[in-house]
Design a protein around this nucleic acid. Structure first.
Ligand SMILES: [Mn+2]
Ligand SMILES: [Mn+2]
Ligand SMILES: [Mn+2]
Ligand SMILES: [Mn+2]
Lengths: 124, 124
DNA sequence: TAGAAAATTTAGCCCAAGCTAACTTTTCAG
DNA sequence: CTGAAAAGTTAGCTTGGGCTAAATTTTCTA
């Protein structure tokens, strides 16, 4: 049973691209660069990696969109992100810290652990 | 207020070195390689990075020891590791998964979040 | 609608962290 | 005490993900 094992880079990018598309209708390299705190050439390079990985659809100089696979990955990453943040806040962590820690933690949370977080959230 | 920001590599190495010294009296590259799932040359290279960072004391071909700074870092990493694992288990995650997830999560847990984990552990 | 500004890409670097192959040093068994 | 096995190092390569400077393309605005 092959685990897909997308990289953290891929997860953060598709998550952000999905959010930008939702908010603005399209995702532009310059916004991705700003949000992720990297420079535009880094985004260009990483986007072509995502394209090679089949997660992104894109023509040169144009906006970036997600493939079917990219959308699915983005959805599960966004869901996981929300759960991790909510869970940390439930424990009493302030929102800013919860967001910052979740940005790293999310990539190491297995299905099992995510389910445990959800259980904790359910029982208020 | 300068945050030290040791790399994940450094944290995992000093943590493991401390454990090996505790268990065996010394830490040897070949054991580090086995435990971390990397090859010996990788360990040699990383140990010299740790030495350059002042975390490790070592002569060529000899066992590896921690400096004062290395011991302090190791202690706080081991403590954090234990807390994260115990916390995940408290949530109902099985030990193996808790260990595996904690190995990644630990590096992204801020002081604030760690304190929240401890609070949860205290109130049983 | 031409030209300036903004966005994007390309080229060419850097560094961390991994690997294999080959070599050197240490250790251990007979 | 010697030689083979084990351990460790070195050399040299690869990949991912970052950067700057410079070129190119697109988008605005006067
Ligand atoms: Mn993230
Ligand atoms: Mn995220
Ligand atoms: Mn770890
Ligand atoms: Mn650990």
């Amino acid at each position: 049973m092959r685990q897909a094992h997308e990289s953290e880079m891929a997860e953060d990018y598709v998550e952000l691209i999905a959010e930008l598309i939702e908010a603005r209708g399209e995702a532009r390299p310059i916004e991705i660069a700003e949000r992720l705190g990297v420079k535009p050439p880094t985004v260009t390079k990483n986007i072509s990696r995502l394209k090679a990985a089949g997660l992104v659809r894109r023509e040169r100089y144009r906006a970036i969109f997600l493939t079917e696979a990219g959308q699915q990955l983005a959805e599960s990453c966004r869901r996981r992100h929300r759960i991790v943040v909510a869970f940390l806040q439930l424990l009493g962590v302030d929102e800013e810290t919860a967001e910052r820690d979740a940005e790293g933690i999310e990539h190491h949370v297995s299905k099992t652990t995510l389910a445990a977080f959800e259980r904790a959230l359910e029982k208020c």
